[in-house]
């Protein structure tokens, strides 16, 4: 399912908002989530999961083509931990 398919699915399931409103809402929502993570903030959605940042320390890497060593600075990466309801629901048939 892509973002536009998700927007369509939301539009067919309700009749108050136009598809244009839903499109704007989904985009605003995702931008809000990205902004929060970019500012080091956690996201917590009960029944869905939480997003946080994980720290990756600096390391020396190697360019696989040239064999040259490169210093890779410390960075943060986004991390998602599924919540209980989501974990359970993807295993309903099990």
């Amino acid at each position: 399912m892509t973002k536009s398919e998700l927007i369509e699915a939301l539009a067919t399931k309700q009749n108050q908002l136009t598809q244009k409103d839903i499109d704007a809402a989904v985009k605003t929502l995702l931008e809000h989530m990205s902004q929060a993570l970019a500012a080091g903030e956690r996201i917590e959605i009960r029944g869905f999961g939480s997003f946080s940042l994980h720290h990756r320390p600096a390391r020396t890497g190697r360019n696989p083509k040239t064999g040259e060593t490169v210093n890779l600075p410390a960075k943060h990466v986004p991390h998602f931990k599924p919540g209980k309801e989501l974990r359970d629901r993807v295993n309903l048939d099990a």
Partner: peptide, 28 residues
């Protein structure tokens, strides 16, 4: 531990790039 399905999340290029630059403390 029984066989199961687990949800994974792979952040996109754009989100990775925005988060990579974050230098402050991580909110726990």
């Amino acid at each position: 531990i029984s066989a199961r399905r687990v949800v994974t999340f792979r952040p996109g290029q754009k989100l990775r790039a925005r988060v990579e630059a974050y230098a402050g403390h991580i909110e726990q």
